[in-house]
Design a protein around this nucleic acid. Sequence first.
DNA 1: ACAAAAGTGTTTTTTATACACCCATGC
DNA 2: GCATGGGTGTATAAAAAACACTTTTGT
Lengths: 252, 252
Amino acid sequence: MKINSEINIDSSYQSYLMKKKLADFKVGVDNVIFSVDTKYNRLLVLLFQRKDEPFRDRWSLPGTLVRQGESLKKAAHRILAEKIAVKNLYLEQLYTFGGPGRDPREAPESFGVRYLSVSYFALVRYAEAALIARPASNIAWHSVQEVPSLAFDHNQILDYGYHRLKNKLEYSPIAFEVLPKKFTLNEVYQLYCTVLGENFSDYSNFRSKLLKLGFLSDTGEKVCRGAGRPASLYRFDAEAFAPLKDKPLVFI
Amino acid sequence: MKINSEINIDSSYQSYLMKKKLADFKVGVDNVIFSVDTKYNRLLVLLFQRKDEPFRDRWSLPGTLVRQGESLKKAAHRILAEKIAVKNLYLEQLYTFGGPGRDPREAPESFGVRYLSVSYFALVRYAEAALIARPASNIAWHSVQEVPSLAFDHNQILDYGYHRLKNKLEYSPIAFEVLPKKFTLNEVYQLYCTVLGENFSDYSNFRSKLLKLGFLSDTGEKVCRGAGRPASLYRFDAEAFAPLKDKPLVFI
DNA sequence: ACAAAAGTGTTTTTTATACACCCATGC
DNA sequence: GCATGGGTGTATAAAAAACACTTTTGT
């Protein structure tokens, strides 16, 4: 962690006093939680409706302030667990927004406590994500295509998270952390289509490319989805993927 | 910014009191400042030798604590400007390290002020980067291949920055922010070789790929580097690049 | 003339794209 | 039987990789 370099650079106490005062911070964590509704092919983001000023009644990203002894990641997990119950998820740090004046309660002239936001990006399995409805609370999935105007700079954070989601999907196997243990190739394809748009690739080409990578293994089991030929169930083979890690893979 | 969601979720003051206390933070900015010595084909990182405990005499990334009214980016620029004088640079946020216990002065049991580090990643033009030698200060370029054991978790931050540098070089035109206004294609190639390693691409293929992208224009000027045919000087054409922005470009 | 560095072109291999077509099931 | 979704193969185009060759300078 960065230490008091003021002192490091110039250890005279006098010149230290001449320097400007350090800012005091509270650190918040805001989560951009995505999910894919494979039934209706919608990309969803979890939003929370504020109860208090500022931005009363506005929707915002679910967030919390970091507690004593709590790591950033732990805080991200805590707020996530407060809103939804989910077993499988992918979570990574997104970006840190920390300029003065992000929070309207912090007047431009006042140099009191500043609120810094470390944003996290998560992808959860829709089918198993049960919303935790609390009394007097309001939490809901919103289609990413039609999000309202959010509190603070949360629209900006959401955009950045959406951008990251698309990138991650193309370059790393996060889809398989959110799909069921056993899945059909068409389910993978639907997920990619929903996030990246219809025209990202032809299904049969997507298929062969994905299989050629060699980390999906056919379980032999078949599953019928209404009419049509039964589909094979595949599973993600972590061992076969291991050597590919850190390599510039492209999945589409 | 994330607001006191404790209050949002459950506005009863009583249950608020039952929640754990919030952590108080000082926020530091640590810079991973890279430079390429094209003469000796070395990738360099700027390090600062600590004067005080903890980690006295150890090398560390140059950093500072954020002051009142100062944005994170501004703090990153300030510490950079304190160590080197440079006109052209590329700077972007890297990652935020904020777990408890990063700083040895913060005992695991003590829940006092916590030090959070927002790291920034910079690439500067070596030839024009003049180190600012201060009395009783120690600042120097180190080859990335042979960095010593750094203070705090700075080796980890450096690794992450190096990783980002390699990615950025492949996917965005940051090299041209650090090359002189007019440059030869071989200079670009040398820079890429130094950062990515010798075997990333054949020179003539690199050449044609880069030129085919269409945002380098031949100034017509020639320059002689000792023996051999004179090389053309090219310049980066920002207008020609503009439409390519936000597209998945590959430069190698 | 010849070495050295710049720059061009050609051949081979691999990968991407766009389809056409066969397979297995429900109705 | 035929519509529906699953799965395979092929023909073409484009891009990557390897490398041979020409051009222009200094010595």
